[in-house]
Write a protein that binds this DNA or RNA. Structure first.
Lengths: 232, 232
DNA sequence: CGGTATCCGCAAAGATACTG
DNA sequence: CAGTATCTTTGCGGATACCG
């Protein structure tokens, strides 16, 4: 161990926070972790989800995250043939931190530039972050959720919820929605009943499944922007 | 609001995590927050605690953190005259996140370069991060803790612990130690009794106060480095 | 002393073309 | 599709000079 100096531009501070930033503080690194939270991804899929990263930078980040034990390269499961990147156990320990960071940062989203890009994958990650821990489902339930990025599987049991990319092997319900419609329902701007009758959402012919799905999540009220004492 | 585009090089992603990084993802920003967690600081003190930051960069970071509502400039309390920077309520909401990040990163500290710098301030921040929530003190207690960076006050009541820079108005005990000695006691490498008799620590003439102080914290075992499947 | 502005050298990031 | 090589641009570190 201690091959060499893994950190190219280390803060060189004997401090856990500074060391954490040596590992995941470079530009893009935390977003790579975010995208891997929903499951393994190939190099190209990572690049596609991180507009303007530049493949050389992505390579450098993955290399550092690999040598620091956050991410692992693995042969892709059979049909695919190829390589995927996934979080190691150490990397998965970042999940609660990244989700807390996302909840915190969501209150500054009113400052985003107008040209900001949308991925349904990120909405799904936000669902995980805003999962309502005080809500318990009556019986274990699996949803297939189809959005613009493709299918996701949502599994709930008691007060636990897990979400991952890809369709579940067997779903109790299949929900399909335009991203923006799902988002508006999650933040309480749109009634599921209205969306269903408008045809913006389909719920497997079973409207209750959509309501049950939405009940798992507690997105904050929309007015939550930060007020900065307005300057001169 | 929405003065302009506050983020010079925004990720421009509609995602809470990406937005959080737009705010505090620049180099040094999180370390500024870390240093402000223990109390307000002046520009010079911040610069001194962040070796090699460069004053222009520090100015730029503070400016962004101020416009985003994370940090506030305030006139220093009376004796001093001048300006101090402190966390806003929004900025303080980062504290649990930064501490969790520090706990996570502390397990990669074996990768730090050999020339890494030590500040007792960071050890104190680690104490806060590794505070043992399952430990309750019998009665409310205040310690004055003297380290190389100066005095800190540690206040414990029931299972709550708060730490800030500066001496407390009234302390139940005054503990004084060389940084490294305190660290070794916290990670269990050095018995407080032995340190006291060696004179490496003084405890106000009351040895029990030191033991009580150490009992507040649960630093992880030292072997906690991450194993990366050793390559080639 | 606290803070800002400016210049320079360098290293990292963005963009894209190219190769196994 | 996965990644490397190359070129340009931008941000950072360091020094220094300048205002309050």
């Amino acid at each position: 161990m201690q091959d060499d100096a893994p950190f190219t531009r280390s803060y060189a501070q004997v401090c856990g926070v500074a060391t954490a930033l040596d590992v995941i503080g470079d530009r893009w690194s935390i977003l790579i972790v975010r995208d891997l939270m929903l499951g393994p991804l190939r190099f190209g899929d990572l690049a596609a989800g991180l507009p303007s990263i530049g493949t050389n930078t992505l390579t450098a980040r993955l290399k550092l995250l690999e040598t620091t034990g956050v991410v692992a390269r693995r042969a892709a499961p059979l049909p695919d043939r190829g390589t995927v990147y996934e979080l190691t156990p150490y990397g998965r320990e970042l999940e609660p931190i990244v989700m807390a960071l996302g909840r915190w940062g969501s209150r500054s989203m009113d400052r985003l530039p107008a040209n900001a890009v949308w991925h349904s994958r990120w909405l799904v990650a936000a669902m995980l972050a805003f999962h309502d821990e005080s809500h318990a489902v009556a019986k274990p339930t699996t949803w297939a959720l189809w959005l613009s990025d493709g299918p996701f599987s949502v599994v709930a049991e008691a007060t636990q919820v897990s979400i991952s990319a890809g369709a579940p092997a067997k779903a109790d319900a299949v929900v399909s929605a335009r991203d923006e419609v799902l988002h508006r329902m999650l933040i309480g701007q749109l009634e599921p009943g209205a969306a269903l009758s408008d045809g913006d959402v389909t719920s497997d012919g079973n409207p209750a499944a959509l309501v049950d799905l939405l009940a798992l999540f507690a997105f904050p009220p929309v007015d939550s922007a930060i007020d900065t004492a307005s300057a001169p």
